[in-house]
């Protein structure tokens, strides 16, 4: 198979092989869902409802997925620079951009099983898994959330190359964004100004969509639609930024490696 589809399929296979050869990079994915133990433990004394525990379980899932996108998926391009493969791959006639995008998305999607892990850990430690009222909608919500995380990773991976010192700012993309995305308290309880910022962030709507699908409450599809639209927009911006990165590398404005 040749063409874009061929490049995409080979890129997925290649990235999976790279990940499987260093399983340590997936360790945070295995461990971070255990935050559910911290969350459940913090509220356990107050006899929490199954809805509250589910909501906290979803928070652990989103944290794991977003953290994985920020710290692992966005590093695909960084590793390419470090190993010198970027230099070589840029001499391919076409398809490197497609390959990079596909590989970053592949790594992000590896966070999908975390949702099951969260449910199992919750069940084992506190006797409560995730209570999902509308499974199909919930499935779509999980996919939307992962797509948004992948889009974020794309954007960040470009920034990591273009902006000197971006790596040290990576830390600010976790907890501040969890607060902004309403992972604990709903985003509408944020102060004025921050709330508007939160409205433009895909994670806000993805979390709302996930919770609505789990609780079977109305408005979930609208939230998911908003999350998907914002994810597509940031995915497009991320792809354009990667394209720009590759162009700036050719112009010699950015170094192939640090």
């Amino acid at each position: 198979m040749t063409g874009v589809a061929g490049v995409a399929i080979h890129s997925v296979r290649m990235q999976l092989r790279l990940v499987l050869r260093r399983l340590g990079s997936l360790a945070p994915l295995l461990i971070n869902p255990l935050y559910v133990v911290v969350f459940f433990g913090a509220v356990a004394a107050h006899r929490p409802s199954a809805e509250l525990l589910t909501s906290l379980g979803l928070t652990a899932f989103v944290m794991a997925a977003w953290g994985h996108a920020v710290f692992t998926a966005s590093h695909v391009i960084d590793e390419e620079r470090f190993s010198g493969t970027m230099e070589v791959n840029l001499t391919a006639p076409a398809g490197y951009l497609v390959s990079l995008v596909v590989r970053i998305v592949t790594v992000t999607v590896l966070a999908a099983p975390v949702i099951a892990e969260v449910a199992v850990v919750g069940l084992l430690t506190h006797g409560t898994g995730l209570v999902i009222r509308v499974p199909f909608q919930f499935f779509v919500a999980v996919l939307t959330c992962l797509a948004g995380c992948a889009a974020g990773a794309l954007l960040l991976s470009g920034l990591l190359v273009l902006v000197r010192g971006a790596r040290t700012l990576q830390n600010a993309l976790t907890y501040p964004f969890y607060l902004l995305g309403g992972l604990i308290l709903p985003h509408f309880s944020l102060p004025e100004g921050l709330r508007q910022l939160s409205d433009a962030f895909f994670l806000t709507w993805a979390v709302e969509g996930l919770r609505a699908a789990a609780a079977g409450s109305p408005g979930g599809w609208r939230d998911l639609g908003l999350a998907a639209a914002l994810a597509v927009a940031s995915g497009a911006a991320g792809t354009l930024m990667l394209q720009r990165v590759l162009l700036r590398l050719r112009r010699g404005e950015v170094r192939f490696h640090d």
Binding site: T168, L169, N171, A172, T174, Y175, P176, L179
Partner: peptide, 10 residues
């Protein structure tokens, strides 16, 4: 902006 902000947020 990177480190302290994250810790306060945490």
């Amino acid at each position: 902006l990177g480190w302290l902000l994250r810790l306060v947020a945490q």
